[in-house]
């Protein structure tokens, strides 16, 4: 694994050049460039805010909009990281057939691009939060959130790597992931507060849902200004470690065979 990481480091120029290319292509495709990537979540959130603030927001848009924006940024990263990341090996087949680079590099290409994209959305969410709360609570708590962002990055990279390998063998992996993500989106308190599940007596589902735990770790401190508990951090650290372990295991198991299936 150390070997793997040093090899990725050795080819960092290659990786970063491709990430830059991906972002350039992504933003060039729309007339508004980067603006579009900002406009889209803002438009979505405006619609959500208008409609759902009545339902879930307790008619308090100043609390609900930050909650929604940060939540969508975090969820967007986890979702797109996995769904797009699973294409990493298939999509980079040309490089794989040409040079023996570590496979983690290709998923990292997707995840890094996605992280920058979601980072922009996150930054906007943060700015809106400050504007809504009329103080700098949200900025002051960032020290407690930063490690959680690193963990989210590592977890998304690992999960994407696992599915990228599976995708080489099963061509409907991406489709199934999209379906799965849709289901998880509704099961996770992203647009609605967790109390909605508690009221229905299914709050335990939120406790078992890794996506929700990442939201609690990143979003909740920003909106409330309270640092997360050590217990929560340990749980998420455990989940991330397990997913890294699974990814390393999958790569070790399949890396010598996967090239014959591409």
């Amino acid at each position: 694994m150390i070997q793997h990481l040093t090899a990725i480091w050795k080819f960092r120029h290659f990786l970063l050049a491709l990430v830059r290319l991906d972002l350039r292509l992504r933003y060039r495709r729309s007339i508004l460039g980067v603006g579009w990537s900002l406009l889209n979540p803002i438009a979505m959130t405006t619609v959500f805010a208008v409609v759902f603030v009545q339902l879930f927001g307790g008619n308090n848009p100043k609390a609900y909009i930050p909650f929604l924006l940060i939540g969508m940024a975090v969820w967007g990263f986890l979702r797109e990281g996995t769904v797009q990341g699973c294409r990493a090996l298939i999509g980079n087949e040309a490089y794989i057939r040409q040079s023996p680079l570590p496979y983690g590099l290709y998923t990292l290409r997707t995840i890094l691009g996605q992280a920058i994209h979601s980072g922009i959305a996150f930054g906007i969410g943060l700015a809106v939060t400050v504007a809504c709360q009329k103080d700098f609570r949200a900025i002051g708590i960032l020290w407690a959130v930063f490690p959680a962002i690193v963990l989210a990055f590592l977890a998304a990279w690992s999960v994407a790597t696992i599915f990228a390998f599976i995708n080489v063998y099963f061509q409907d992996t991406q489709h199934l992931l999209e379906v799965g993500a849709q289901i998880v989106f509704y099961l996770t308190p992203i647009m609605y507060p967790r109390e909605v599940l508690d009221r229905g007596g299914i709050g335990w589902m939120a406790d078992l849902n890794p996506a929700n735990l990442f939201l609690e770790l990143i979003r909740t401190p920003i909106v409330t200004g309270e640092p997360p508990t050590a217990d929560l951090y340990l749980t998420v650290l455990g989940i991330t470690t397990v997913s890294i372990g699974l990814a390393v295991g999958t790569a070790a198991w399949l890396q010598k065979r996967v090239v014959f299936h591409l």
């Binding site: 050795k10 080819f11 120029h13 290659f14 050049a17 491709l18 290319l21 292509l25 040309a94 490089y95 057939r97 040409q98 040079s99 680079l101």
Partner: peptide
């Protein structure tokens, strides 16, 4: 090997020189 492999079709020649050269270390 396969010459068409390992190019980014959307990027121009200069950029592709860069990617390949980085790929070769």
């Amino acid at each position: 090997f396969d010459i068409s492999l390992g190019f980014e079709p959307e990027a121009n020649g200069w950029d592709n020189i860069t990617y390949r050269a980085y790929l070769q270390g």
